[in-house]
Amino acid sequence: MSIEILNREAQGEMVQSSKATVEPVASDVLGRIGNLETRLARSAREIDAAQAVRYRVFVEEMNAQLPADAMRRQRDIDSWDAVCDHLLVLDRSLEGDPEDQIVGTYRLLRQDVAMANSGFYSSSEFDIDALLARHPDKRFMELGRSCVLPNYRTKRTVELLWQGNWAYALKHGMSAMFGCASFPGVLPEQHALALSFLYHNVVAKDEWAVSALPSLARTMDLMPVEAVNPKKALMALPPLIKGYLRLGAMVGSTAVVDKAFNTTDVLIVLPIASISDRYVNYYGADAGRFAS
């Protein structure tokens, strides 16, 4: 029942979005809809600008507490930024340089790059190593630090972020994506309905099973399955998590409270082969939907 609801919503959104104007794009631009475009950051200045956008969302809006140097610089920055690729959405109608036009960002980390450096960011909360060990023949990529400025939290912006993720995954031959997604606040009980819905309906199992590190794990099984109203639960899900589910994602079996970022985190797991055919067809098997 829950997946049918998600699919009906997705069909309606795609009908609306298909009316968007699609224009030819430059060679390194992954997609464009109207005045918005998505591509990877081209310079240190653009990465710095993306970190400033993250600071505005995570600190000024969500009350995250970053290390003192990051707070002083007003940048959300950590050691992974130096090795990740930074996906951007830019509003080209804004005046100024490209770094003044960044309205959304995602941080992308491929498995080969992670293993050559400090591992995956999510490993600080979830048992990623066990997941990777069960899939030695697959190539994983981590999605993180997703944020969009308030005035741009629209279907078009989200579609372009996913256009970029999809194009990037295809280019690098990725087999699966994963990453933390968050509920606001540090009290999982306040999200009992949504967390219980995820636990009873879309928990990753068998070869894709993953859990939080034992010292950090918090239960998501906060309500019995018969007490969970799927429609109400879907309405209670953060938009990012709802979007992942529409694509065909699963979630880890336990959550983590991140006091620094003032969030309750769940791990999203999305095998490329599990992405809904509807979305593969929509974006294009070659990621060409908004890139031509």
Rank of each mutant, 00 (worst) to 15 (best):
E61C: 07
L40A: 03
F290Y: 15
T219S: 15
R92H: 12
L131Q: 06
L36V: 09
A194R: 02
A130C: 05
Y168W: 15
T219F: 06
L161C: 00
A44C: 00
D81Q: 11
A133E: 14
V15P: 00
D258C: 05
M177C: 11
R92M: 14
L234M: 11
L193Y: 02
R289D: 03
A217K: 10
S79A: 14
V251Q: 00
L267T: 05
A209C: 09
G12R: 15
N35F: 11
D85E: 12
A70E: 11
L149K: 01
L213F: 10
N7A: 11
Q11W: 09
D28A: 08
F197S: 02
S146A: 15
E61L: 07
R42A: 13
P224F: 02
L267E: 02
E61K: 12
A217F: 12
V53H: 08
V186H: 08
A192P: 06
S27W: 08
D127F: 06
K259S: 13
D129G: 11
V203K: 11
V59E: 03
R72T: 13
L198S: 02
W208T: 08
W80S: 10
D81F: 12
M250E: 05
Q190F: 04
D91T: 10
V15T: 11
V59R: 05
R75E: 04
E226L: 08
T154D: 05
S18C: 09
I3G: 00
A236H: 08
N201V: 00
W208P: 07
L109P: 00
E60P: 01
R75D: 01
R39S: 05
A44K: 14
V203E: 10
W208H: 07
V22L: 07
G185C: 09
G243M: 00
D127G: 09
T264Q: 07
M71Y: 08
E9Q: 12
T154K: 04
S93A: 15
V29A: 07
G164C: 09
W80Y: 15
S118K: 13
E125Y: 12
E46P: 11
F178S: 03
T38F: 03
L36H: 05
A116S: 14
E189S: 13
V15E: 10
F58S: 01
A68K: 13
V257D: 05
A192T: 10
E13Y: 11
P136A: 13
A181Y: 09
I102A: 01
A209P: 06
L193F: 04
D85C: 01
S175N: 14
N262R: 11
R110P: 01
C180S: 10
A233I: 07
C180H: 09
T254G: 01
C180Y: 10
A82E: 14
A181F: 08
Q101P: 07
Q163S: 03
A291R: 15
I241K: 00
D76V: 02
T154V: 03
R246V: 00
L36A: 05
G12L: 13
N262W: 07
D78E: 05
R92F: 05
A209K: 14
L132D: 03
V225F: 06
V225M: 12
I3A: 12
N35H: 14
S274A: 15
L109N: 01
E9G: 06
R75S: 07
G34N: 00
E4Q: 14
M223G: 00
D100H: 13
A50S: 15
M174Y: 00
G31I: 03
K171D: 13
K155G: 10
E99Q: 13
K232M: 12
R32M: 04
N117T: 15
V210P: 07
G96D: 02
I275R: 01
